[in-house]
Design a protein around this nucleic acid. Structure first.
Length: 426
RNA sequence: GGAGAGGUAGCGAAGUCCGGCCGUAACGCGCUCGACUCGAAAUCGAGUUAGGGGUCAAACCCUACGUGGGUUCGAAUCCCACCCUCUCCGCCA
């Protein structure tokens, strides 16, 4: 969320941000609540100061053996007044807080203006579309035929939007996960974490999924626990309510976890294949950065995601999300879109965001430097490195052969026991 | 699941029985600055929670003792509910 004082002192900036993001929020609502709150606050604080002073006085009188009945009677009245005002104040504070936590982050000035994904500019392109002298097939066709994926049995076990991976399919998923983790940890310096896949409300609030996006989450029955929609949640919340040392920054974590999403509101969208499932694996990267250099970290982390696709030699492009398409907590986001020949389109395979101090303020994550006496909020970044299931799709569709087999990218072969080609026998 | 102990600043910990200068919170450690020293250790001295209101800036004021309620003129302290941690027992991959 945004800083209360920042909003108060920069109403025009916030108003402009709403416009850029096509938000219906109105700063007038805030102005009204904030004014009311401060007025009431001052009123009640004067009374509280009086109560404290009188209370001390009563203690003194009693200690000296005097009679304080008259003062006590007046205190009763005072306390009643305070109680009533406190109730009103609580309501207004709650309303103001609700407003504040529903406000999206302010886009960085470098973010292109736009209203939808159609306005996202292509920032760079790597590689080329593979040349195929045959009609490329979709992965849900090819991978099923080769016995690596089974959607029908997944539907039996659970329902729509689930997949069973088997044989080479299961191994490929595992190989990709290890491949990605090894690069991110060994070469890019991320500390590997295996977090809980179930988190509480505070964690989801910290990263911004709650209170606004509850319908996207799976909540466990008879508890206040939720399945994680991304490892961004547990990784970022690792340092919730902590003060880091400036010299530690940037702190970098990665984790391979399953992700669970209800996909409410996406009915009829990407219903086929492995693209949009209720459960998928993702290698996630999270960084806690110094405010002065967080945008450098954004470029760095994007390159860490790109590196995976380069090693796999798969054509992709990087797009910069425009103001109207950016996520709630982000100041700036790059998406990596991988080429899928079977479907003849580019598909998001990674999203890398700098959230500035937006999450850090919610989750109370600070750092302190030697000379500064006050701790300040860190900047948090998160990005996929990469979505494993979608990388699976990219490998299958990009490396498919005319005879219906799939060549395994060279970088991946050590993870596949030396296997070079996937066939129905694999 | 059963029994018990506990949650107070960066860490440890006193205070809770018996409500009132005990919350910029005793005491210890750590950290920062200074003195001593060629330098360091040791020692001595000073400083060291966060959020909010207020102010040009200050002064000043309010809030927070796991969380939320309650009792009371007044709650770290009494009452109720919940959360978390630890120990022992039971169960278990």
């Amino acid at each position: 969320m945004l800083d209360l004082k920042f909003v108060r002192n920069n109403l025009d900036v916030v108003r402009e941000s709403f416009k850029k993001r096509n938000s219906k929020l109105d700063v007038k609502d805030f102005e009204k609540l904030d004014g009311q709150r401060r007025e009431l606050l001052q009123e009640v604080e004067v009374l509280k100061a009086e109560r404290n002073a009188t209370s001390e006085n009563i203690a003194k009188i009693k200690r000296e053996g005097g009679n304080a009945d008259e003062i006590i009677a007046r205190m009763g009245e005072l306390s009643g007044k305070i109680k009533a005002l406190d109730e009103d104040l609580k309501d207004i504070e709650a309303a103001e807080h609700d407003w504040l936590v529903s406000v999206p982050n302010i886009p960085d000035d470098s973010v292109p203006l736009g209203s939808s994904e159609a306005d996202n500019p292509v920032t760079r392109v790597w590689g080329e579309k593979p040349v195929m002298d045959f009609e490329p097939r979709e992965h849900w066709d090819l991978a099923v035929e080769l016995g690596g994926v089974d959607f029908e049995r997944a539907a039996k076990l659970t329902g729509a939007r689930f997949a069973v991976l088997r044989k080479w399919g299961a191994k490929l998923e595992r190989a990709l996960t290890s491949f990605m983790l090894d690069i991110q940890t060994t070469e890019h310096g991320y500390t590997e974490i295996i977090p809980p896949y179930i988190v509480n409300r505070d964690s989801l609030y910290g990263t911004g999924q709650l209170p606004k996006f509850a319908e996207d989450l799976f909540k466990l029955e008879n508890s206040e626990y939720f399945l994680i929609p991304t490892a961004e949640v547990p990784l970022t919340n690792l340092h919730r309510d902590e003060v880091l040392d400036e010299s530690e920054l940037s702190v970098a974590y990665c984790a391979a976890t399953p992700c669970f999403r209800s996909e409410a509101g996406s009915y009829g969208k990407d219903t086929k294949g492995l693209i949009r499932l209720h459960q998928f694996h993702k290698v996630e990267m999270v960084r806690f950065a110094h405010p002065d250099t967080s945008f450098d970290d954004l470029e760095l982390m994007t390159s860490h995601a790109e590196e995976i696709l380069k090693r796999l030699n798969i054509h992709y492009r990087v797009i910069t999300l425009c103001t109207g398409d950016m996520g709630f907590g982000s100041k700036k986001t790059y998406d990596l879109e991988v080429w899928l020949p079977g479907q003849d389109l580019y598909r998001e395979i990674s999203s890398v965001s700098n959230c500035g101090d937006f999450q850090a303020r919610r989750a109370n994550i600070k750092f302190k430097s030697k000379d500064a006496k006050k701790a300040q909020f860190v900047h948090t970044l998160n990005g996929s490195g990469l979505a494993v299931g979608r990388t699976f799709v990219a490998v299958v569709e990009n490396y498919q052969q005319k005879d219906g087999s799939i060549v395994i990218p060279e970088a991946l072969r050590p993870y596949m026991g030396g296997l070079e080609v996937i066939t129905a026998e694999s």
